[in-house]
Design a protein around this nucleic acid. Structure first.
Lengths: 253, 253
DNA sequence: TATAGTTGGTTCATTATTCGAACCAACAGT
DNA sequence: ACTGTTGGTTCGAATAATGAACCAACTATA
């Protein structure tokens, strides 16, 4: 990993739970030397990607983020269209829904999500978390539909366990991926968080390459096999809607 | 400028007019070597800040931008509150309004803007453009209210002319800044774009440091002195509203 | 079918930049 | 006065960025 990637990785530590981070905390989070982290933070600040509180000296996400997002949404309105589609989806199936897109080899990042508001027990999606490829329904379905070579690269990076149920056997994973690719949807129970079951279908870009996934997440206890069958068509409708709004194209098969 | 800043500067070339940029075009824009630019683009892509079209190979802004913006807006909802305030402002004065925030030493970046919809001739704000400190009303008022030391640093960087009317004399600028600081608002006619007059008032963060400005921009021909007097109180109301929503604090004077 | 001009991407020796242990300064609590 | 914080700085050593030259694929032109 080069200097640029290491610097940008600092930004990934921000979350809704941790919107302000000081130098010392960054040093603990990264394990790098204080001087190194300090210089990187300084460059990010000068570039507008971080804002430093003039008194507390803590860092937070800066105005350059907003500026780029304005350009991005105005030219490729990914978030808006994703939000529209899952709002409809949530209306139909009454469970937490989310849209995630590939972000390099580390996992998926959540672009839009809507939490189920009708049940007492419901799954909460953290929009900040990076979803691993091998331990979530969205990740699995994306992995199954992407280039073989890239998928292999990701698998060979290692399959860390997040729960006792995480699939860590790469041979088994490869077999599952074939199955997922054939059916066009993935299911994952408790691989990332216990007692949560996810069902996901893939999204494609304008060259019919897999770009991410749209998924439903629900407590395992509530999701029966017949529920899953009922949900699947709605998921596919949402996927088609999102894919089309991106000028994406479903692959031929 | 370090490697990190140079890499991030690549991202600033994206705009609504230019949402996709290829390697060769980047090389022309930056003047750096092709191999260098290619490596930087690769790191930005791996970090999710760029997305590369698998077929055309062109680069566009990536999903990491959206992810960070979600966190930023959920924890420090700068854009939403700014938008609310200028919508009201626009309703009252019927001219183009915008909110911009400090972005390092290069200038201000526009966070929210609303174009006047009632007049035939109106000013269009490009949300992507970086507004120079010395040639815009927003820039001048920010420069006048920031730390003296930082303002001096910016002035000494040089004062490029954008039009024949741009103020390029640093001695004159310093005098004007004192005047602006005393009155609490800045006025700039044709300094950045000819035939455009801007009026701006400062915004402050939660330690009463100047963080940016809210401004009205109108064709010079339409803006009389009495119009300006009429607008000013509305601008100050908007500024107080935005500052308060950021948990900001007006300075004592 | 050459040919020349595109495009994106790669190699590797040279060079400049990043790195990090040790250091400073300000502040808070004991 | 001591101790543990905090953020920030220095400078020689080590590492990573650099860029001229190269490759490969594609397109238009001769």
């Amino acid at each position: 990993m080069g200097t640029i990637a290491k610097a940008l990785q600092l930004l990934t530590h921000f979350s809704t739970d941790q919107p302000e981070i000081g130098l010392t905390r960054f040093v603990k989070l990264t394990g790098d030397d204080k001087a190194t982290v300090h210089r990187r933070l300084g460059e990010l600040r000068e570039s507008g990607f971080l804002h430093q509180d003039p008194v507390t000296k803590a860092y937070r996400l800066g105005p350059a983020i907003s500026r780029l997002e304005i350009v991005k949404e105005r030219t490729f309105p990914a978030r808006r269209s994703a939000m529209d589609a899952i709002r409809i989806l949530n209306g139909k199936v009454a469970e937490t829904a989310h849209v995630s897109v590939m972000q390099g080899t580390s996992g998926l990042s959540t672009l839009a999500h809507i939490d189920d508001q009708r049940h007492g027990i419901r799954v909460h999606v953290d929009a900040n978390e990076i979803l691993p490829y091998h331990a979530t329904a969205s990740g699995l379905v994306t992995l199954a539909h992407m280039d073989q070579s890239q998928a292999e690269k990701i698998i060979r990076q290692g399959l860390p366990a997040f729960t006792a149920d995480t699939l860590t056997n790469s041979q088994q994973l490869r077999a599952d991926l074939h199955q997922i690719c054939a059916t066009g949807h993935a299911r994952c129970q408790g691989g990332f968080e216990l007692d949560v079951v996810g069902i996901a279908v893939p999204l494609f870009d304008h060259h019919a390459k897999c770009a991410g996934a749209v998924a439903i997440a629900a407590p395992s206890s509530r999701m029966t096999a017949s529920d899953e069958r009922r949900i699947l068509p709605d998921l596919k409708i949402a996927a088609r809607s999102i894919t089309e709004s991106w000028q994406g194209r479903m692959p031929d098969d």
